[in-house]
Amino acid sequence: MHDEKVILQVNDLKKYFSLRTGFFSETRYIRAVDGVSFELYKGETLGIIGESGCGKSTLGRSLVNLYNITSGSVLYNDGDQKINLINANDREKKNYTKSVQIIFQDPFSSLNPRINVFETVAEPLIIHRYPKEEIEQKVSEVIAQVGLRDEHLRRYPHSFSGGQRQRIGIARSLIISPKVIICDEAVSALDVSVQAQIINLLKELQARYHYSYIFISHDMSVIRHICDRIAVMYAGRIVEFGTKEEVLNSPKHPYTEALLDAVPKISNRKSKGKRKILSGEPPDLSRERIGCNMFERCGYRIDACQATPMKLSDVGSHHLTACMRTKEIQLNGLSIEAKQP
């Protein structure tokens, strides 16, 4: 599937937002991403799943340098060049930008309605001062790759459907030949009948150009379909990490179990109302805590969970979990075999 070369190495990444409610009130911090570490292999698809507000987008945006990281490090290494995003100079930042791109969720707000398709797609090249002929040729190539035609180039975004707009957004991300692409809910806002088109397109492009994807989603079915490895995020932290098969079939964290259980299943008709349901709501990110961040909602908690600092530990075959009780409890995963297509 993918070779074992690490292309992106993220260490203890933190992004705090300061929150001021008034002129004289004191500043509070939203710990949107609170110490995330992982490595992304060349050519793989890493899924990041978690509920709304758990910091997925913040993580993704930090990785493309849209936010100033609070602390931690991001190392990019594609064999030819090594860039440390934190202390990169301007030229390195530019190269990093060319190598790591992002696809946004909302096909409507991600395209500037006042700029036609050609300019939208060409923008990254214009920014990086490519010669004019090269721009034209590349735009024409990439627009074909995403399944649109040259005649679409002079049109404005308002004349496209959601799926087509998403294709345009994808073309814009692909045009400077990045190596890593962060898909932030890239299919969530699309009509169900169009989602599959875009999922397939992303997969085809990966097969052809060996992109590494970080695929952010809240939809477990989509994640399961497209990813090789999965990171489960909860309240700003990764709580479980491993290959798709490991995480889905034998989850090692109660949150993952609850997520899997909560996903609506088309064949659940006969077993209505027999689910274990995670009660309560996600925690307040501005509160500092020592112990397990899922304590309030966890059915397996004991007092020690609240006092023991959270930390990811390996339970074998690179399967990491943040639950300290993982050895003592029995968790259920999906019972269906996840065989590859």
Partner: peptide
């Protein structure tokens, strides 16, 4: 056209 969580991946 939709991915289903409770069936083999196709």
């Amino acid at each position: 056209s939709i991915p289903k969580i409770d069936q083999p991946i196709e």
